[in-house]
Design a protein around this nucleic acid. Structure first.
Lengths: 167, 167
DNA sequence: CCCATGTCAGTATCACTGAAATAA
DNA sequence: CTTATTTCAGTGGTACTGACATGG
């Protein structure tokens, strides 16, 4: 290996293990980029796992949580909250409905609108904690001082805004 | 699925626009989760855009950057650096090779190994700046004090570690 | 007629699992 | 024979574009 990593070279055919503190030196921006994509990757990995264990993915559960906090939301407003394309949300809602976590009905005053509510099963998922992406995040954050969490959330917001703004 | 088939007019559509500072109030963790997924989403959006404009996605370019800093790396070591499953990297490398950004050859001493190097086109991409995900990130970070950037990178690392560690 | 809301079909990337091919 | 490296086939979720159905 030309790039020598600190950790043991091999693990069976499993996902490459995160080696905290790689011995390699990347320039500052590249290192930050790697951290960003690592987070992205971790989120999806955990989300995938949750799908296997609990029957829904991270984004799906996030939709459940939002509907839990704002029952009667329209599909469009949930899409805006999560910065999702309406058609993406359609897919997710279709799935959630099929699995019996949400109910869709037409708004009585504007029948184009889909009004969303949780089913009892959906409410159980909303209250769920063990095994969720959220639980992992909470666990990681517990060890950190509040100001670091605030700073991170602020910086994440700025990054996300910049990324989605550029065309 | 609720199938409604019938014909009538048409009208275009665009992605739900990011509303900075949503008027809604989410609880603290949910708000943080939203920030995480928003970042994830922004990354992919920008990555997608870069693919259209420059011919490669964020992860693909990151691979190019890594190979640029460590020419002669094996596929496996790049996978470790980026926490990717080897088979995921295979896909990406196949694509990069097809487009002429990298060359693969067998390591002369261990012919199982694929040794990776940039082509001239790959080196141009490595040096590229305008229109990349990295450029957006840099732009966002320019406005921030160094300590906030360091904190964010630290927290991201902890989060990613926790997320990918839990099974 | 025009705009808003939501859905659908088609497409692409990412990333996984599990198995195989090849070499050490 | 066993292990390591990489690839391949198949699968599934996310999320887009563009078209379209339908209601206001």
């Amino acid at each position: 290996m030309n790039v020598r990593l600190r950790s043991k070279p091999a693990r069976p055919q499993k996902t490459a293990r995160r080696s905290r503190e790689p011995e390699i030196r990347l320039d500052a921006t590249l290192s930050f980029m790697r951290a960003l994509w690592a987070l992205d990757h971790g989120l999806r990995q955990r989300s995938r796992r949750m799908h296997i264990d609990l029957g829904l993915t991270g984004p799906q559960r996030l939709v459940v949580r939002i509907i839990g906090q704002f029952p009667g939301s329209s599909a469009g407003s949930v899409a805006v909250i999560l910065n999702l394309h309406p058609s993406t949300l359609t897919e997710i809602l279709k799935d959630l409905e099929k699995r019996g976590f949400i109910k869709r009905r037409a708004d009585s005053r504007d029948r184009r609108r889909a009004v969303l509510d949780l089913t009892p099963a959906g409410r159980r998922v909303d209250r769920l904690h063990a095994g969720t992406v959220e639980a992992s995040v909470r666990k990681a954050l517990r060890t950190l001082p509040k100001h670091k969490i605030r700073t991170t959330e602020e910086v994440l917001g700025i990054l996300a805004l910049q990324l989605s703004r550029e065309k």
